[in-house]
Amino acid sequence: MKNALALVAVLALLAASLIGFSGTAQADEIKMVGVITKIEIAGKDAKSATVTLKDNKTENLVVLTVNDDLTLDKFKDHRIQEGDEIRCKYEVIDGKNVSKYFRKTAGC
């Protein structure tokens, strides 16, 4: 009886672990501050842009995909331009660095 209970407990733990690990993997949010070196956006109606930032800490170039309308609009009318310093958060989704937060650091 004791052995059977232990077996049930082990199976339950195993099942819980499987459920826990087999769900959709949560992408980690990565934070960085960097300067824009390149903005690629295809026209006024573009729903996405590719932006390259030079990470202030590592000096590595990081390529981000930006999808949010507010930021895209700022690229289109050049409120955000190459040379601007950006504070951003992004997640790696299907191999792409997808922007979740994209703000100029400067103000007046």
Binding site: T105, A106, G107, C108
Partner: peptide
């Protein structure tokens, strides 16, 4: 962006 940055 008043006061030194966005939302500041």
């Amino acid at each position: 962006a008043a006061g030194g940055g966005v939302v500041v």
